[in-house]
Computed example of a mutant assay.
Amino acid sequence: MTPLPPARTPGRYHVELVCLGNICRSPTAHVVLEERVADAGLDDVVTVTSSGTGDWHVGQPMDRRAAATLTAAGYDASRHRARQWCGPDDPEPADLYLAMDDANLADLGGPGQRTRKFRDLDPTDPGTDVPDPYYGGPDGFEEVLGMVERTASALVEALLAERPWDTSRP
């Protein structure tokens, strides 16, 4: 795995998860990763956000099927409101942008130091896309949740091991 990029601001680290509309995949990953970060005691250092490359769902809650899948698994999906990715002009840019698929990654400008695919960190099937469950049934949302949980755990392990916000480390 490629090391995590260093923090832009010492002592803080910002991870942004990006999909197309910010109502299915990236908010699912946002909710799960935020809980994993808190469980690891990193919520005072690591900020998790999510966004979509499109603007058609801005301000809306998560897709009801994604929210139901998260709720059934014990997560709180109620706070999410879709937002659009701000691009390079973001006043609070993330340290690491994780795209859900190749098309989302291309919208972010392609792979780079601060941009990669979310599943690049997946210990089971690295580098593959998180499939978009929007046009399918409930099984697709459950499949996405499984991928997200496993990958979010791996990301937290990398954060704990590398501590990219700690500028005093070599």
Results as ranks from 00 to 15, higher is better:
residue 156 V to D: 04
residue 170 P to M: 03
residue 103 A to S: 05
residue 58 V to D: 05
residue 108 L to T: 02
residue 119 R to T: 08
residue 89 D to H: 03
residue 116 R to I: 00
residue 93 P to D: 09
residue 64 R to F: 12
residue 43 D to K: 01
residue 143 E to M: 09
residue 87 G to T: 00
residue 50 S to W: 15
residue 101 D to L: 13
residue 41 G to R: 05
residue 154 A to P: 12
residue 99 A to N: 03
residue 53 T to G: 05
residue 156 V to I: 01
residue 130 V to R: 10
residue 31 V to Q: 15
residue 159 L to G: 05
residue 83 R to G: 00
residue 66 A to C: 08
residue 35 E to M: 04
residue 170 P to S: 11
residue 1 M to V: 06
residue 97 Y to W: 01
residue 51 S to F: 11
residue 38 A to C: 10
residue 55 D to V: 07
residue 16 E to H: 11
residue 87 G to E: 00
residue 39 D to Y: 04
residue 81 R to K: 13
residue 55 D to H: 12
residue 16 E to A: 12
residue 36 R to I: 02
residue 158 A to G: 08
residue 67 A to H: 02
residue 31 V to G: 15
residue 28 T to V: 08
residue 111 P to Q: 03
residue 51 S to P: 04
residue 62 M to H: 09
residue 80 H to A: 15
residue 66 A to N: 10
residue 26 S to T: 00
residue 165 W to L: 02
residue 100 M to W: 03
residue 25 R to V: 06
residue 21 G to F: 09
residue 138 P to Q: 08
residue 139 D to A: 14
residue 60 Q to H: 15
residue 147 M to H: 14
residue 140 G to T: 15
residue 163 R to L: 02
residue 29 A to G: 06
residue 72 A to E: 12
residue 3 P to Q: 13
residue 155 L to I: 07
residue 103 A to W: 06
residue 72 A to P: 00
residue 19 C to S: 10
residue 96 L to T: 06
residue 11 G to I: 05
residue 132 D to I: 15
residue 150 R to I: 12
residue 70 L to H: 02
residue 5 P to I: 01
residue 19 C to I: 10
